[in-house]
Amino acid sequence: MKAVYFLVAILAMTCSLVSAYDPSPLQDFCVAINETDGVFVNGKFCKDPKDVKAEDFFFHVEPASTDNPLGSKVTGVNVDMLPGLNTLGISLARIDFAPKGLNPPHTHPRGTEILIVIEGSLYVGFVTSNQKDGGNLLFTKVLNKGDVFVFPIGLIHFQLNVGYGNAIAIAGLSSQNPGTITIANALFKVDPPISIEVLTKALQVEEKVIDYLLKQSWYDNN
Rank of each mutant, 00 (worst) to 15 (best):
M1N: 15
K2P: 02
A3Y: 05
A3C: 06
L7C: 07
L7S: 13
L7Q: 08
V8L: 15
I10D: 06
S16I: 15
L17R: 13
S19W: 00
S19H: 01
Y21T: 15
D22N: 14
V31G: 10
V31N: 06
N34I: 09
E35M: 07
D37V: 06
D37L: 15
V39G: 01
G43R: 04
K44S: 14
F45K: 15
K50C: 15
D51N: 08
V52E: 15
V52A: 06
K53D: 03
K53W: 00
E55I: 10
D56G: 07
F58L: 03
F58D: 03
S65C: 07
S65R: 06
D67I: 13
N68D: 03
N68V: 05
P69K: 15
G71A: 06
V74K: 15
G76P: 12
N78G: 00
M81L: 14
M81G: 02
G84T: 10
G84V: 12
N86S: 01
T87P: 00
K100G: 01
G101R: 00
H108A: 14
T112Q: 09
I114R: 02
G120N: 03
Y123D: 12
F126R: 05
F126S: 06
V127C: 05
V127K: 11
N130S: 10
Q131T: 13
K132A: 15
G134H: 04
L137I: 11
K141W: 13
L143Q: 03
N144A: 09
I156H: 01
I156Q: 03
N161E: 01
V162C: 02
G163A: 14
G163L: 07
Y164V: 07
G165E: 09
A167N: 01
I170R: 01
I170S: 07
A171H: 00
L173W: 13
N177W: 02
I183Q: 04
N185E: 01
A186Q: 06
L187C: 07
F188Q: 11
V190Y: 04
P193Q: 10
K201A: 08
K201L: 09
K201M: 09
Q204F: 01
V205F: 10
E206H: 08
V209K: 00
Y212F: 14
S217V: 09
N221M: 12
